[in-house]
């Protein structure tokens, strides 16, 4: 069993995408498009199956936001998946040392 006092005292965000994801969710809430109690319910349903070390916390957050975006009819799951692929292609097509932008996707 994990000893709770031995968890690493990590910074709030360990990777840039986590900060981006968090801010995106809060911004969506503050703009009036995602009531927080509904968010917490949806996130909580995923977290109920969480692993002990909480390493799936941010992936669960991303999946929840993705679900909320589709559930609210903002975009289809296939649109989101296609955009994620476009971002991946854009990154591959971007020379090292340059910022990745979606315009760099060769298929766009």
């Amino acid at each position: 069993m994990l000893n709770l006092s031995e968890f690493p005292d990590a910074p709030p965000f360990e990777e840039p995408w986590q900060a981006q994801l968090f801010a995106l969710t809060v911004a969506l809430n503050e703009a009036g498009h995602l009531p927080w109690p509904e968010w917490a319910q949806a996130f909580g349903r995923r977290r109920a199956q969480g692993v002990d070390d909480a390493s799936d916390y941010w992936p669960h957050w991303a999946e929840t936001l993705s679900d909320e975006v589709t559930r609210r009819g903002i975009a289809g799951a296939e649109d989101i998946a296609a955009l994620a692929m476009a971002w991946t292609r854009a990154a591959h097509a971007t020379p090292h040392g340059f910022a990745v932008t979606l315009e760099n996707d060769p298929m766009r």
């Binding site: 991303a62 936001l65 994620a84 692929m85 020379p95």
Partner: peptide, 22 residues
């Protein structure tokens, strides 16, 4: 030396693109 986006970064950017474009 090209840039490799991990799956979570790509998904986050996709969500951001959707929400900003809308």
């Amino acid at each position: 030396h090209d840039n490799d986006l991990d799956e979570m970064t790509a998904l986050t950017r996709a969500l951001e693109t959707v929400l900003v474009e809308k």
